[in-house]
């Protein structure tokens, strides 16, 4: 536990010193603010576009509401949040191994599972804080530009998105331990994430179902609670982190 604390502090300081912390937070906040704005101006853009293209045809586009703002937020995070989770995670273990930093620190009393747990914990902190700030921005702008959506539903959506993102982080991190090189790790992470996304098409237990559930809660729509998908997602994340510990423990370094 003491060593975990030391290692987590190192990881967090690394995120800060290498500017990754500030950049990820800025991007997440940016997407939070952008979503309601996009929802607001999309009809105008469509209108201008269609006026120029198809004269004489009248298209009525309904006035956007806070629902559209929430949908935009969900869409942006599910696309760019995913990319961010991938980019921030897949290189961290394979990178330290490739560069030889692991060969320097592992002979010291740093259990490899503690190393993995601290990496995951640092990324989890980064994404939880980032997503909360992002959601705050999205909510404030939604209130400014539309009507206020239900705060409880919006918070539920935010946390379900966080759980979903952390599952992707855990999978990318697993790829980072598995990959022999940076490129290989990126490829494995990509394949794992695609597999998880495709699973949504086949089973209501897939992590992606959390996003539908969250959307329903945020816009007040009628949709079944997906506690089972939540348990599967948390379990998959725990499994990925545990497998990561086992793999790294057996791995030869250097």
């Amino acid at each position: 536990m003491r060593i975990f604390g030391v290692q987590l502090r190192k990881e967090l300081r690394e995120l800060w010193r290498t500017r990754k912390l500030i950049v990820v937070l800025a991007v997440l906040v940016g997407f939070g603010l952008m979503s309601p704005i996009l929802a607001k101006i999309t009809p105008d853009l469509l209108e201008q576009f269609s006026e120029g293209q198809m004269e004489g045809i009248v298209i009525t586009i309904p006035e956007p509401t806070e629902r559209d703002a929430i949908d935009q937020f969900l869409k942006n995070i599910s696309q760019f949040g995913l990319l961010l989770a991938l980019l921030m995670s897949f290189g961290v273990i394979v990178g330290e191994r490739e560069r030889g930093q692991l060969a320097l620190v592992f002979p010291h009393p740093l259990p490899r599972e503690v190393f993995v747990l601290a990496k995951f914990a640092a990324l989890a902190i980064l994404f939880v804080v980032g997503m909360l700030l992002s959601a705050l921005g999205a909510y404030l702008y939604t209130v400014l530009l539309f009507d206020a959506p239900s705060l409880g539903g919006f918070l539920a959506l935010t946390w379900l998105m966080i759980v979903w993102l952390l599952c992707l982080v855990a999978l990318s991190l697993l790829a980072s331990a598995l990959g022999r090189s940076m490129v290989a790790a990126g490829g494995i992470a990509f394949v794992l994430i695609i597999a998880v996304l495709l699973a949504s098409l086949f089973t209501p237990l897939a992590p992606g179902q959390l996003l539908d559930w969250g959307r329903a809660l945020a816009v007040g729509a009628d949709a079944p609670a997906r506690w089972d998908a939540l348990i599967v997602t948390l379990g998959l994340s725990a499994l990925a982190v545990s497998a990561n510990c086992l793999i790294l423990r057996r791995q030869e370094i250097g």
Partner: peptide
């Protein structure tokens, strides 16, 4: 756009090594 700087700080910055 916003992902460019992210990619740079995550993968391209040199002083982390």
């Amino acid at each position: 756009s916003m992902l460019g700087p992210i990619a740079y700080f995550a993968l391209g910055r040199s002083e982390d090594v």
